[in-house]
Nucleic acid binder design. Structure first.
Ligand SMILES: [Mn+2]
Ligand SMILES: [Mn+2]
Ligand SMILES: [Zn+2]
Ligand SMILES: [Zn+2]
Lengths: 140, 140
DNA sequence: CTATTGAACGATAATAATTATCCTCCTGTC
DNA sequence: GACAGGAGGATAATTATTATCGTTCAATAG
């Protein structure tokens, strides 16, 4: 956890008490928590912390590469009337979603058994990257 | 598009003018639109339509299996401090996210070239299904 | 074709999630 | 220890989504 201090220095971020606790809460969790869940966790140690601080630091950490968002498209509901099996290209910058046929990938196959009693229904594959427009220039 | 009338009858849904136009907007779009985008599109034909109607019918269609949501976890931000390569099991009922090592799947590999000028960065795989608790009983 | 009726619609309020604002305070540096 | 700028806290504002409720319309029976 002293490694966190170093990373902050590298990144030019102040290593505040709040940041340390927030990061520790995240790093010690296996549940992929929401901002609210982190807030609830952190309040055990810093009862006076503001939810806005949690949000701000989540963003800061994510931009710094200390954290990842589990889903790129969580900001707004996106719908698909194409019920056939296919995958998606997702532009991480403009959030464009482009169909690609499933034959464009080697088949997705499990090796061995899943943990717990998890019952799998289907595989969802997103190829993250930049769409043509975003890959080129600034303006999209 | 007359097939839509049939599906509605099968499902016990009234085939309203609004539903027809909303569904047509979705079916004819390749962009995986947001509810707002559908609303804007539909308003060309039904200027008086309510945004709430669009939301309600999106939900109706999704529950009926006429539509799919592109991302299962769009409702709230979920964070991950595990930066190593791994995949996720996602419970579609309680939204639990569980890590699985990438060796649990055959490697994801592209066959041939991607369309457009899309520049891929990484593959994101989610195994959708039910977690142990949700697979068993009602209460979770 | 008309009457009937429950489902669906439109308007809008309410809730939830996230971001912005602004003033105060603390970390990092000298 | 003093200083400056970034960071935190409180809270307002914004955005996304859902709930409420009175009115209207699609489906069906007569
Ligand atoms: Mn699609
Ligand atoms: Mn993970
Ligand atoms: Zn793009
Ligand atoms: Zn579950």
């Amino acid at each position: 956890m002293d490694m966190f201090r170093k990373r902050c220095k590298q990144l030019g971020l102040a290593c505040t008490h709040q940041r340390l606790i927030i990061y520790r809460a995240l790093a010690s969790s296996a549940s992929h928590p929401t901002p609210e869940a982190i807030y609830d966790q952190v309040r055990h140690e810093i009862p006076s912390i503001s939810l806005a601080t949690v949000y701000k630091n989540i963003k800061t950490f994510t931009e710094a590469g200390l954290l990842r968002e589990v889903s790129v498209l969580h900001d707004s509901l996106r719908l698909d009337a194409n019920l056939g099996n296919h995958h998606h290209l997702v532009c991480t910058r403009c959030k464009a979603v482009i169909d690609i046929p499933e034959e464009k990938l080697d088949p997705i196959r499990l090796r061995g058994k899943l943990p717990d009693g998890f019952v799998a229904d289907r595989f969802l594959v997103e190829i993250l990257g930049l769409c043509a427009a975003c890959a080129k220039g600034r303006t999209n």
